[in-house]
Design a protein around this nucleic acid. Structure first.
Lengths: 235, 235
DNA sequence: TGAGCCCTCGCCATTTTTGGGGAGTTGAAA
DNA sequence: TTTCAACTCCCCAAAAATGGCGAGGGCTCA
């Protein structure tokens, strides 16, 4: 099952190929729904999913990602999560849940969080309507396949979207990295300069050159971009 | 092979258990060396590896992570990488490579980058001395196992280190998130306020309350912490 | 129904950052 | 060997952020 999907993935070259491949997963994985949704630090998004257009529109309109326990949990966790194990209490959350079920999302789901370079974050989800015990068996048996599938889907998505044009390969000098790292840690310029044993002026030079390299409009922006690109020691 | 390791991992409860489990992987995976190294956004680190203490000390002393092509590539990529495919040109890099080989690291290696919540980043590496073709066969056959192994090792490491005390569960209100997001994108307060259609003063209130929640000493710090914790829309 | 969080607005003084200039050494790459 | 990037230091004036004061309405959960 996974084999055939990975083989199919090999031949994928465009986003529409990828769309088709992901959608085909629902039958291969024997679930009602499959969702892959990637968000980059630039705000750029890509999604391939079998949910109804109405539900997707509704979800976006209401900004449900803000309260969706699946999203909230996956952002904070590393390991895949069964929807049953989430906390569905709270008024807004409950009405969201009912609405989701009414829209045919299913009462069971399993989501895998995936993180890529430069702050990319993606979610791979399978869902459907099943009884608890059958679903538990299903997820237990398939969890490894689901993890691998999510990994390879994400890899392919990044490959296609970024292509070989990794235009954002900015590299900071050690001192620039140091400077931004201190700022990210909450030091002001005077403190940071002292920590690094250099004059505040010198520190400024580093910050400014880093800002220039990162095409950032101010210090906060530079730190944010550097963090997103994993250029800082603390990130 | 993977099965027995995962079973063993089940019983792991402390970091020393994990150490032992990881080290045992070298025989199970049939390689000379295994390395797992995790870095959190707090700077907290954990490593379990079969390299010699001398080499580790040397590596740290010289801050080789800054030039190590394996580290540099893994920070920027999502997929696992065979060391042979990296760019080893450059004076410093070449001398680093020779020193590494002399220290018994091996001439072949395969590294899997792993990213967790809150900016956690880890590297799972196997290395050894092999001829190119044998190594190519090895990595091709085992890549999925290596990916899964790295995933489960990281999951366990996070589980042990964070435990149930996820003390850093700060949550920002939607407007606070919006405010920090705009700042992270490089807007100054005036621009951010305009984009959000609120007064600059109101924006300040959000920034300040976010700063308070995040225990941050200034705006840059608050943005950095929020990003690390995956609280912003752009991260 | 009250406690508590969220959203919204204003002013003033102080501190910090930023933008604009320059200048000299070192070491590595081409 | 020349070029280029990195590291270090300095001044001044304008712009931006911060700290501290205060105020009211809306919503949710216990």
């Amino acid at each position: 099952m996974l084999e055939s999907f990975l083989e199919r993935l090999e031949g994928v070259e465009t986003l529409s190929d990828l769309d088709a491949a992901i959608l085909s997963l629902s039958s291969e994985l024997d679930v009602e729904h499959v969702v892959y949704h990637s968000v980059k630090s630039t705000g750029e998004q890509y999604a391939a999913l079998t949910y109804s257009d109405e539900w997707v529109a509704r979800y976006l309109e209401k900004d449900y990602a803000r309260i969706d326990p699946v999203v909230q949990a996956c952002i904070r966790r590393f390991h895949p999560i069964d929807w049953k194990r989430l906390n569905w209490s709270g008024k807004a959350v409950k009405s969201f849940l009912h609405e989701a079920i009414d829209s045919g999302i299913g009462n069971q789901g399993f989501s895998v969080p995936i993180r890529g370079p430069s702050g990319q974050f993606a979610l791979f989800t399978v869902s459907g309507s099943e009884k608890d015990d059958r679903w538990a068996t299903y997820t237990q048996e398939r969890s490894r396949e689901l993890i691998l599938a999510s990994h390879y889907v994400n890899q392919k998505a990044l490959e296609i979207e970024c292509g070989s044009d990794q235009l954002e390969i900015v590299s900071l000098s050690p001192r620039e990295t140091d400077a931004l790292t201190m700022l990210a840690l909450g030091f002001n310029r005077a403190q940071a300069a002292e920590s690094l044993s250099i004059s505040e002026h010198t520190l400024r030079v580093y910050i400014e050159s880093a800002r220039f390299k990162l095409a950032a409009s101010n210090t906060t922006h530079a730190v944010a971009r550097a963090m997103n690109q994993g250029l800082l020691n603390i990130c």
